[in-house]
Structure formats: structure tokens, C-alpha cells
Amino acid sequence: MGYIRDRWRDPARHGKGKRWQVKIRVDGRERDGGTYDVKAIAKRRLTELEAAGQRGQWVDLTDRTTVAEAARAYIATRPYKAGTLERTLGYVRNHVEGTDLGARRLTAVRPSDVQAWVTDRAAHMAPSTLRALVKFVRSVFRAAVDDHRIARSPFVRIALPRHEQDRVVPLTVEQVRALADAVVVRHRALIITQAGIGLRIGELLALRAQDVDFVRRTVRVEHQIDRRSRERVPPKTPRSRRTVPLPTVVAEALAEHLAAHPAAPDGLIFHTAEGRPLLQEFVSRDVFGPGVRRAGLPDGTTSHDLRHHYASVLLAAGESVLAVAERLGHEDATLVLTTYGHLMPDSEDRTRKAVDGAWSALPEPLPADAPAAQALPG
């Protein structure tokens, strides 16, 4: 499986160099196990490498691949959508390449190197973005372990800055109404529709007349508009394909909108004068921005706050977490709990009634002075 080669050279002619070279065959290929001054050390290293090869844990310590190179290779193998790909490449360009960690060889990275990198990056980015970056780079090292390029990942016990996520403060019905009244008449239905069925902005802009069933009072979410290409593409996740109930307030707003502004030839409800999908940047800049200011809503209010409003209305009405997650198109219902848990109605009264109801169903206890025979069955 392996052998040691004598690389003795005449120092006067070739200069000094380590003499004993270890070679090992792994996966049908001959690999370099390093060179050593002492033959006994070379033999011990050969034994270690052979044992690691038999366990499937052999690592080529001479591999010169850097962390930045491994990150780009990792991205190239992943089926990222366009938006995710651009964001992930940005992580590599801005936060891996050009750093000490990015320039290090994969096989030479220690946990202390990772911690130093995380601490440095924490000074340049928001805590939530830092966590996403760390998750990505951790995945790069995990893939390197799976490919037997490193023995173990250096991402162990890494301390991240403390991050308290801001609690969602949803818009009230009055605030949503004020926003709808503050935008151009043509875009009022857009505001009411997102607040009333909780679509993502891309899903909202892809909504077609044939997706709305006014008779059965449902809306089918089948597509979203890509924010860059403006093409109709599949929604964010498989769970995002869903059917949501159509409230009367939304049905009336859509009917009024379609009467004044007929759907585009392909059925698109919200479109430009040429029948093309609206740009997300246009909606944010020219619809929500001016509307938020005129309505006196908090700075930073975006279309996503209408989605928060929708979730808060459902929770306040007693909808289950699973139902809310399904309506929002979330893959994981726990995301609803972590994001909106503080908005759920107080359950103290329900707890008291549950216990009292269970106990009230039991037979009344016998009086203390009841005859003993009465207390026995039969």
C-alpha cells in the first residue's frame, strides 16, 4: 500500500534536503506522504498513513488548496438559484478572499484561526449576516471533511457576538389602511392583497388572474417574479407552492383593480403599461417609500411588514402555528414560533379552563362522614 524511498543526494552538488520520502497509494493513486530526515520517523509516518487509508481517513497534508479556492469550488458544485449564488459569491469576494483565513491552506487551519477571522468579520457586518457567512464557510469545511481533504473541521466551539433579534412589531389594520390610501390609486390593491393573503413580494408581483378563484375564494401561488430577470420562475421552496384563502376585502380590491386595469395578456394582475411585471425596486422605491412617508408609518417599513401583519392577524385569531406556516409558505413551522411567538395570545386563561374543565368532569368526592360501605364499590 505504501513504501519509503531513499532520496539521498550529494549535498555538494544538489544542496541539503530531507532524505526519506513516504509514498502511499490511496484510491488507486500514488500520494506523497512527505519527506523526513530520519528513516524511523518516515516508517512511523507510513504506518499512520496506511492505517488512516484503511479507515477511509487519509488526508493529503501536501495539498496546497486555500480556503478561498475551496470556497469557490464548493459553490461551483451547488445548485444555487441566481440570487443565492450572487449572495454567496459576495461572501467569498468580500469576507474570505483577502483575509488571513482565505489565504491559508485547508489542511493548516486551526480553530484559533477561525475564531480570529470571525472576530475580525464581526467588526464589519451585522450579526445576522455574520451568522449566515459563518454557516456558509462551515459548510465548506464540512464538505472538505467528507471529501477526505481534511481530517476534521476547525469550526469547533466558535464564539459569535451575542445577537438579540428585534421583535416584530406588526402594522395594525388602521396603519395598513392608511398606507393603501396613501399610495397611487392604481397600487392600492397591491397593498391590500399582500396584507390580506401574506404573499412574498415576488409572489405578489407574479399573481395572475387565473390564479384567483373568486367563486371558491382561494388564491393559488404558483410562481414568483425574479427580481433581476423579471421572468416568472418557480417560488422560493416546494412548500411555497400553496393555496391560500381569499378574504372578501382582498377579493373586492382585486375585482375593482381588474375592472380599472385589466390583466395583461398572460393574466398578470400587477403590471406596467406595456404588460410587463413590476420591478421589486420600483415597488419599494416608488410605491412603498412615498406611501410610508405620507401615511406616517415607522421609517424602514417595507412590503415584508405586510407579511408580518398577515401572520399577526392569523395568530391573534387563534390559527395554529402549523396553519400560519402553511399560509406563509414556510418550510419549517418553528420559524413562525421564533419570529412571531411573542405575538401569540396569552394562554393563561386557556390553561386555567383546561385544568378546571378536566377536574370538573370527575365525580364529586364523598362527604367525610359518609359510611365506609358507601365508599366501597359494589
Rank of each mutant, 00 (worst) to 15 (best):
R167P: 10
T129P: 00
M125N: 07
A143D: 15
A159L: 12
P79H: 11
R138V: 07
V183P: 03
L89F: 02
D147Q: 13
A82E: 15
T62E: 15
R149N: 09
R162H: 13
S112C: 02
I150A: 01
V184Q: 13
I158D: 05
T129F: 06
D181M: 09
R105D: 05
R167V: 10
V92T: 03
T129N: 08
L106F: 04
P111Q: 09
R72Q: 12
A132T: 08
V173G: 14
F136W: 06
T84M: 05
P161M: 04
T62H: 15
H163Q: 10
Q115P: 07
V173Y: 14
A180N: 01
R138K: 15
T119Q: 12
D166F: 11
I158H: 02
E86L: 12
V145R: 05
R93L: 05
Q115R: 10
E97G: 07
T129W: 04
A180P: 03
R167S: 14
T62M: 13
V59P: 01
R157P: 06
T88E: 01
V92Q: 04
V185S: 14
T77V: 10
P170D: 09
A108M: 12
L171A: 01
Y74Q: 06
F141W: 03
L130V: 01
A116H: 14
V109W: 08
R138Y: 02
R93A: 13
T65P: 06
T172N: 11
V185E: 15
P154W: 05
S112Q: 14
G102C: 07
A73Y: 09
R121W: 04
K81D: 13
E97W: 06
F155R: 11
D60V: 07
V140T: 02
I158L: 04
G83H: 08
R87A: 09
H148K: 14
A126N: 08
R152Y: 12
D146R: 15
A143K: 08
Q165W: 09
H163G: 10
I75E: 08
L61F: 13
R157L: 08
L85M: 09
V59S: 03
V183G: 02
A180F: 08
V92C: 03
T84R: 08
R104D: 02
D63I: 05
K81V: 10
S112N: 12
D147V: 04
T99Q: 07
T99D: 01
R93W: 09
R72E: 14
V145T: 01
R87T: 09
P170Q: 04
T107A: 11
R87Q: 14
G98Y: 11
L89I: 03
V140W: 02
E69Y: 07
R142M: 07
A122L: 01
V67E: 05
V109D: 00
P79L: 07
A116I: 02
A68S: 13
R64I: 12
P161T: 07
R78M: 11
M125W: 06
V173F: 14
V185N: 07
D146C: 00
R142V: 01
A122E: 06
R167D: 15
L160M: 15
A182H: 05
H124F: 10
P111E: 03
P127C: 04
D100S: 14
E69M: 09
E69K: 10
V156K: 14
H163P: 09
A73S: 13
L160A: 10
E69A: 12
V145C: 09
V109Y: 10
G90I: 00
R72M: 11
N94S: 11
Y91K: 09
V114W: 01
L171W: 10
D166P: 11
R138L: 00
M125F: 03
D100C: 06
D113G: 02
